[in-house]
C-alpha cells in the first residue's frame, strides 16, 4: 500500500516527539491503544491558565499513518484552546493526510488521544479546585 506524501513527510520528520512531565498539574496525558493491531499512542498537552495549549508532545509505536496522525494532531492543537482542540475530528486528519480506508483507525486513535489528554487535564484541574 502506498502512503501519501504527507504521511511520509510526517512519518519521516515527526513533529513534537517527546514527553511532558505527567505529574505536572498543567499537563494532561492521553494514552490510547488500537485493539485491532496492538499499537499504542501517547499524546500530552501542557495548558496555560487561559486554557490555551502551550505545548504538545507525542510518542507513537505504530505504523507510518499512526505516527503521521499523532504528529499532525500535536501540530494542530498547539496554540488552540482546549475547547477548540476538542472539536478536531478524525475525518479532518483523514482528509489532510489522504488516509486510505484501512488506515482510518489511525486517525480515530489520534482523535481519542486528544480527547483523553484533555479529559485528564480537566480531571486534574477539578481535583485541584475541589
Amino acid at each position: 500500500m502506498a502512503y501519501s506524501e504527507k504521511v511520509i513527510e510526517h512519518a519521516e520528520n515527526p513533529r513534537n516527539v517527546g514527553t511532558l512531565d505527567k505529574n505536572d498539574p498543567n499537563v494532561g496525558t492521553g494514552l490510547v491503544g488500537a485493539p485491532a493491531c496492538g499499537d499504542v499512542m501517547r499524546l500530552q498537552i501542557r495548558v496555560g491558565d487561559n486554557g490555551v495549549i502551550e505545548d504538545a508532545k507525542f510518542k507513537t509505536f505504530g505504523c507510518g499513518s499512526a505516527i503521521a496522525s499523532s504528529s499532525l494532531a500535536t501540530e494542530w492543537i498547539k496554540g488552540k484552546t482546549i475547547d477548540e482542540a476538542e472539536t478536531i475530528k478524525n475525518v479532518d486528519i483523514v482528509n489532510e493526510l489522504n488516509l486510505p480506508p484501512v488506515k482510518i483507525h489511525c486517525s480515530v486513535l489520534a482523535e481519542d488521544a486528544i480527547k483523553t489528554a484533555i479529559a485528564d487535564y480537566r480531571r486534574k484541574k477539578e481535583a485541584r479546585t475541589a
Binding site: L31, V32, G33, P35, A36, G38, V40, R42, K59, F61, H105
Partner: peptide
C-alpha cells in the same frame, strides 16, 4: 469480532504496553 467490537484496554494495561515499547526502543 473486529474493529469497533473490541473491548477498550484499561489505562493501566496501556501504560504497561507503552513502557515495554519504550524500553524496547
Amino acid at each position: 469480532v473486529g474493529e469497533g467490537a473490541e473491548p477498550t484496554a484499561a489505562p493501566e494495561f496501556l501504560m504497561e504496553v507503552m513502557e515495554w515499547r519504550e524500553a524496547l526502543a
